[in-house]
């Protein structure tokens, strides 16, 4: 577990997963503001969150697993909320704007190929933690 308080670490953790690097302080603060109205994490989500903190590379698999086996999970909701916040930050416009040309095809193929493997691992991890 990192040294910073969990609630401060959470948006950075999610932001890093979603963008591939640390999100801006502004995005972090927006998440913290929004999180005041979030429900507390359910038990399964809390366990998955601890697991992801220990093994950050596992978050992608957990996220894909929840999409198939826990759509209403509070952990998935929080990742989604961070994504919504990042989408409305002009500094991340290029992460959410349409990609064109061969880059679009490559990104699409890569994501489609990767998703089933992540989902498979994710489903196992989510099922074990239920």
């Amino acid at each position: 577990m990192p040294q910073t308080r969990v609630e401060d670490y959470e948006p950075r953790f999610f932001g890093r997963y979603l963008l591939g690097h640390m999100p801006s302080e502004r995005a972090v603060n927006m998440y913290l503001r929004a999180s005041r109205s979030f429900d507390t994490l359910d038990d399964a989500s809390r366990r998955l969150m601890s697991l992801a903190y220990r093994y950050p590379w596992l978050l992608g698999a957990i996220d894909n697993g929840l999409a198939l086996k826990g759509k209403s999970s509070s952990l998935r909701f929080r990742i989604w909320a961070m994504s919504a916040i990042l989408e409305t930050c002009p500094e991340y416009f290029s992460y959410f704007s349409p990609v064109t040309g061969i880059r679009a095809a490559l990104k699409l193929i890569f994501a489609i190929l990767r998703a089933p493997f992540r989902a498979l691992i994710g489903i196992i991890v989510v099922s074990v933690n239920e």
């Binding site: 699409l108 990767r114 998703a115």
Partner: peptide, 28 residues
Amino acid sequence: RSLLLFRLMSEMPLGIRDARIILQALTP
């Protein structure tokens, strides 16, 4: 387009990050 991608992401059977990448390609 103008309803933003996050509204669709939660509906997709994919992780949020993968959903974003796929939607970027699919939006047009």
